[in-house]
Design a protein around this nucleic acid. Structure first.
Ligand SMILES: [Zn+2]
Ligand SMILES: [Zn+2]
Length: 237
DNA sequence: TCTCAAGGCCAT
DNA sequence: ATGGCCTTGAGA
């Protein structure tokens, strides 16, 4: 993987996974970006509920990305009043989140960001009253994952990103042709893998399948299980 | 001490 | 105005 000036695309595809799909955000029409290899496998793969970007921690009540944190802070601090030029339902993803601050702020509130967590006196550091809440939420998530890991429940794997370069066309062939119907003998599998683009440099891929917990992932992929709901896959190149 | 969410800074 | 990175500081 040559890291050029445009090293953006030279990254491992990002993957979400989830038990039986039930916990997936129902409104996940996020066009997720790729994630750096460094992040993959180390940091929990959580998605910002507002825009789908990578979360950087708890901000004003819940896990959000860095940009929505900043946006919410500015909005509240400066008593921003926005208006939507459309119908109060603009799409929110990393590409379009800055287009309509109104809908972005609405969504911030809708998903539970708290104005009260923005300090009127701009005191820095320390902990606010939500500190304990964050702590509980964390350990709740962990418990649930521990359970799901041990339960043997089917889990869902989504892979979306750009493969910079496959070592051989054969790998792509396997990924492609084995998609919906050829995942062997798995009653749960419903995978949909699409490839498009013909350039050798970058290859968009999309996979979404449900697998049994004891079943290996298809071909040339390695699985790193972190938490039950978050699995990171790396394509071996 | 260490943690990590809150505010600050500043290049874009 | 945005968003990535930095500094702060009460609580564990
Ligand atoms: Zn966001
Ligand atoms: Zn709007």
């Amino acid at each position: 993987c040559k890291a050029g000036p445009e090293s953006d695309r030279c990254q491992a595809p990002q993957v979400h996974s989830d038990s039986t799909g039930t916990m997936f955000h129902p409104d996940q029409s996020f066009n997720t970006q790729t994630e750096t290899e460094a992040d993959a496998g180390v940091t929990p793969v959580e998605r910002c509920p507002i825009c789908g970007d990578r979360v950087s921690g708890y901000h004003y009540g819940l896990l959000t990305c860095e940009s929505c944190k900043g946006f919410f802070k500015r909005s509240v601090q400066n008593n921003k009043l926005y208006t939507c030029a459309e119908r109060q339902s603009c799409p929110m993803d990393t590409a379009q989140r800055k287009r309509c601050p109104y809908c972005r702020f609405q969504k911030c509130l809708a998903v539970g960001m708290r104005k009260e967590a923005v300090r009127a006196d701009r005191m820095r550091g320390g902990r606010n009253k939500f500190g304990p809440l964050y702590r509980r939420d964390r350990q709740l998530k962990q418990q649930r994952e521990a359970y799901l890991l041990s339960s043997g429940a089917p889990y869902r794997v989504k892979l979306e990103g750009i493969v910079a370069q496959l070592s051989s066309p054969h790998e792509l062939h396997l990924l492609t042709t084995h998609s919906p119907t050829t995942l062997p003998s798995d009653p749960f599998h419903q995978s949909q893998l699409a490839t498009s683009g013909l350039g050798q440099a970058e290859l968009p891929i999309l996979m979404d399948c449900t697998l049994n917990r004891n079943q290996p992932l298809p071909y040339h992929t390695t699985l790193h299980t972190q938490f039950a709901h978050n699995v990171v896959i790396q394509i071996q190149t």
